[in-house]
Write a protein that binds this DNA or RNA. Sequence first.
DNA 1: CTGAAAGCGCTTACAG
DNA 2: CTGAAAGCGCTTACAG
Lengths: 352, 352
Amino acid sequence: MTPSNRRITLKDLARELGVSTASVSNAFNRPDQLSRELRQHILSEARRMGYHGPDARARTLRTGRSQIIAVVLAETLTYSLNDAVSSELLTGITEVLDAHGHTLLLLSAGRQPAVRQMPASSSMADGFIVYGLMPGDSLIGELPSHRPLVAVDFHINGQPTVHIDNEPASFAITRHALHQAPKRVGIICLRLATTTVNGRLTAEHEWLSVQSTITRSRLDGYFRALEEYGLSRDDIPLWNIEENIHAVCAPVIEEILDLPAEQRPDLLLCMSDRIALTALTLAEQRGIRVPEDLRLTGFDGIEEGQYRAPRLTTVRQDSIEKGRMAARMVLGLDTPHDRLLQTNLLIGETCP
Amino acid sequence: MTPSNRRITLKDLARELGVSTASVSNAFNRPDQLSRELRQHILSEARRMGYHGPDARARTLRTGRSQIIAVVLAETLTYSLNDAVSSELLTGITEVLDAHGHTLLLLSAGRQPAVRQMPASSSMADGFIVYGLMPGDSLIGELPSHRPLVAVDFHINGQPTVHIDNEPASFAITRHALHQAPKRVGIICLRLATTTVNGRLTAEHEWLSVQSTITRSRLDGYFRALEEYGLSRDDIPLWNIEENIHAVCAPVIEEILDLPAEQRPDLLLCMSDRIALTALTLAEQRGIRVPEDLRLTGFDGIEEGQYRAPRLTTVRQDSIEKGRMAARMVLGLDTPHDRLLQTNLLIGETCP
DNA sequence: CTGAAAGCGCTTACAG
DNA sequence: CTGAAAGCGCTTACAG
């Protein structure tokens, strides 16, 4: 008898039943390799003895495949799990993984720079989806080199990417907003500077490059429309926010809304819906009417912005589809190559 | 030379450097087992040759530990990733796992009953946190039996649980709401019936048992306060909602709000903030004033309900702390035993 | 401090 | 259809 204090193995089971380990393995994995009767016998005895099937740890080493895909997130998991856009991306990824018997391992890159390194278990995954890191991040080099990798919202040398048309989308929403002939336009950026800035951006602040961040592309789109309209980029005040959460957005936006009425922008172009929604709430609290006194545009098209009144005018990006595409490529279901998703303009009441 | 088309292994590296495999392994894992010089030499040569460290697949088989903890979610991942309460739970879990070098594997139980089974990779995990399944779910039996397991919001025979005081919390919020002497009380339940019901619950519908679902405990708390106040539970209309998302809540709530004014409840006790927020939005759209014409209470205390006006009156549960506790127990940092978390009442403007 | 060797629990090509 | 055997890439007790 097998000692009961130890977990039962395939070998134990084979010995107990007087068959080879191959037959037990085949009973679980390749039904065509043995007779129906023997298979049923093995499976029912396995159940009786409390053997739940071959151990994933050994199978993974032997076959070289874990059925696990890792998602590397630039932000902390806390942020990513609570942000509507990352949640949608993960939703699209898991939808495809689920349908193909794979599971999702969450890896966060968002820690103190000093201790940033991939957990040892990262080399467990069969493939990697990397979301929104900075190009050249040293973590990318730590990933196993011979496994499929797909980048989302940024570019890794030689690897396929899924991204959206940030510049044209920002151009389009700005052109729409300018129809109403605003007097004073302001822009609220998301992590645009090379240093940490929560507040007004000045000439002293250096910007990240277009290659480094999608928010720079959004800014370029805003500027193109503003200049086409006859405004100079140097006359547009810019604010920056480092983290796309209410608590960090609020103080910066309060600073803007509390400007004297004749200095306060009457159109705020916001680089995310979270920023725009925070501005909307704070404006309402101050009796600033939206859109009469203040027009607002967002970016992302998250549900929260569409399920309330006034609805947000924003750019809708299909993050679920981004996730699906990335997952299909990493699983080898689609040929790996760069994909560019189209966005569309949602006209709500915050900027009709 | 090692063939360049194959991934380099620890053995290759040892051969190349003329040292034993033990020394290479020790260089990565046990610095005290070899001289500083040899270790540095091995690590720098490893980097030069593109060896990123011992493969997690083999290490896991050898040591029996993967550094992976699996979270088994009752709902689909799509739901769980987008729901504020599950996101908070996951946030608390990942916070602890992160701090201890572990990573999170997401497993969803929420599929068609016919095809429900654990993915093969589930036996990869060192431990399991199971969230909100029904007791007796067959999936629980498929998990490896000798690894730590913690249940959240329900009970698995013989395993530690983290849960909250659903009945007293519901009692307390109802007693608060009754101070205002409402004329007609209604209750909107979450998945209370044994069958699928989106709409009014009648005498024909059977309820789940107190052991099976936390929503039954919430109902019991509501009833206790209502009866103490002098109302009979048979006079209180009950509605049920199957899924805690806006799209499913809305039609049921519309049915309630569109009742003739003299039949419409002026107090709605909702079993989740999502339900209460949907009711709030739909009431506003109809010009029903909250709290003058309709008072609303929620459950959960999610941020979305506190960052808007009027703020929700609700029961705040600390789901992040629930996640932390579950993770600490599954990692063996805390002695496994049942934990009961206290909630607190948040008085907002929807039911002052 | 270093090295030779066993073995974690499987899968799979191969011989019968 | 079945069985004996090799080996996936490591870690670790043990002998030197």
